[in-house]
Amino acid sequence: MKEEQRPDIYGQVVFCDDVRQESTGKCIYIGVYNSNLMIVNGGFPATLSRLSFAISVFQKREIFKPQFKIRIFVPGDPDDVPSIEAEVGEGVADSMAGEIDKTADALGLPKGEGLRNYVHVFTVMQFDNFQIKSTGFIKVQAEIGGKRYRLGALAVGSPQAKAG
């Protein structure tokens, strides 16, 4: 069976309590949420002591836009007004795209394949005392070149909300 081609722009989010980085550069995700977050003590509104988002965005090298926005919606937000919006990008022009070949060469990967074709932007966003107003979804989007791309969503619920 033929493998489908990757889209030009795609991404993913790991929703968790905390993200730490080892001296080797590896990330440690603590308290990862698989597909839902259950508020078990009390109902809504609820406050999490910390919520972290490990966000990866991949863009095809030929169309790479180094500056873009991350948009985070919490339950109750209007469809076009996120609670959180942040600019993401490189501090030095062409530094992200320039790292692709260095990394691929260091790994011994062939030219013109895989890793060399996409620029990977990784960022961690952490929020203390994260407010959740109601049941629904925490949604993360990337806005790149005037288009929005869904990166991930986390369902939020509570037994008290169901009972109410």
Score class of each variant (00 low, 15 high):
residue 50 R to E: 08
residue 72 I to D: 05
residue 160 Q to S: 07
residue 48 L to M: 12
residue 11 G to M: 04
residue 76 G to T: 08
residue 11 G to I: 03
residue 157 G to L: 12
residue 52 S to Y: 10
residue 127 F to V: 11
residue 102 K to T: 13
residue 117 N to K: 14
residue 49 S to E: 14
residue 32 V to N: 09
residue 43 G to R: 07
residue 101 D to C: 02
residue 31 G to N: 12
residue 17 D to L: 05
residue 3 E to W: 10
residue 100 I to W: 01
residue 65 K to A: 12
residue 35 S to M: 07
residue 84 I to S: 02
residue 83 S to N: 05
residue 11 G to V: 08
residue 25 G to F: 05
residue 132 I to Q: 06
residue 155 A to M: 13
residue 122 F to W: 11
residue 100 I to Q: 07
residue 120 H to D: 09
residue 124 V to R: 15
residue 164 G to V: 04
residue 137 F to H: 11
residue 36 N to F: 14
residue 142 A to K: 01
residue 102 K to S: 13
residue 141 Q to Y: 15
residue 29 Y to D: 11
residue 109 L to I: 13
residue 107 L to C: 11
residue 14 V to A: 13
residue 161 A to I: 03
residue 53 F to L: 03
residue 43 G to H: 04
residue 9 I to M: 05
residue 54 A to E: 04
residue 78 P to C: 03
residue 50 R to Y: 00
residue 36 N to S: 14
residue 107 L to K: 15
residue 1 M to Y: 09
residue 153 A to Y: 06
residue 36 N to V: 10
residue 148 R to A: 11
residue 7 P to S: 01
residue 114 G to Y: 04
residue 53 F to V: 02
residue 162 K to H: 11
residue 124 V to I: 14
residue 119 V to G: 03
residue 103 T to R: 13
residue 80 D to S: 07
residue 125 M to S: 13
residue 33 Y to D: 05
residue 68 F to A: 01
residue 19 V to S: 08
residue 86 A to N: 02
residue 111 K to P: 03
residue 136 G to S: 07
residue 62 E to T: 10
residue 53 F to C: 01
